[in-house]
Design a protein around this nucleic acid. Structure first.
Lengths: 101, 101
DNA sequence: GGTGTTGTTCGATTATTGTCGAACAAGGGT
DNA sequence: ACCCTTGTTCGACAATAATCGAACAACACC
């Protein structure tokens, strides 16, 4: 099966924003921004592995991440360069952790 | 009734993103960015006035807009300065019109 | 006071999305 | 070959969100 990693310019901006507009997915994106390429299993944010897989699919299909197989794991990474080029400032704006309240 | 215009720092970034992750609302935000303060009725994007009022409420409660009464109309404006300060690059990234496909 | 304009709110419907457990698939050991 | 690990996919269900028409409220104007 094709990995469904679309050309970023073909993804409507609302889809990109919607992908980022979820707490679990935002935590995944932040972890990727900090830790670089990581296995799916490393994102344990209190949801089941089915749900985690779903969120990673949403991120991938919104053009935010790329995935490659590595043994029994799959390694995910942020498409940061492409994102920064097409939407300069977006990731930076979203990634910086805010004061708690 | 209070207008429910929250302090931007009190709004979770996921709510800001979710507010922008809708086609109708994005059109409203773009119109506001271009045209400045406008009456609610000026945003005719193919939805009923009830739906339009709903979307304006979402934008307002996400901290993206401010509304003031003016006669029988209500004038809406973007909270651009605050947004640019708290999320530099976000609006710019989202507002620029992409090539059609 | 009545009428028209402009929005909001209510209740209902529909569509979308998040969540899970269970079943399945692919690899890597041993 | 067997098992364990790692993810994905498949229903199903719950929660959220978009949409509308109709009723309501506030205001201006005649």
């Amino acid at each position: 099966m094709e990995p469904h990693e679309p050309d970023l310019t073909a993804v409507p901006v609302t889809s990109v924003l919607a992908a980022l507009a979820d707490d679990v997915r935002l935590q995944i994106v932040r972890a990727l921004a900090e830790g670089g390429e990581s296995a799916c299993g490393s994102f344990d944010f209190g949801v089941s592995k089915a749900t985690r897989s779903h969120h990673l699919k949403v991120l991938r299909e919104a053009g935010l991440t790329r995935t490659r197989a590595a043994g029994t794991s799959r390694l995910v990474r942020l498409r940061r360069d492409e994102l920064d080029q097409l939407y300069p400032g977006l990731l930076d704006a979203v990634l910086t952790q805010r004061p708690p309240a």
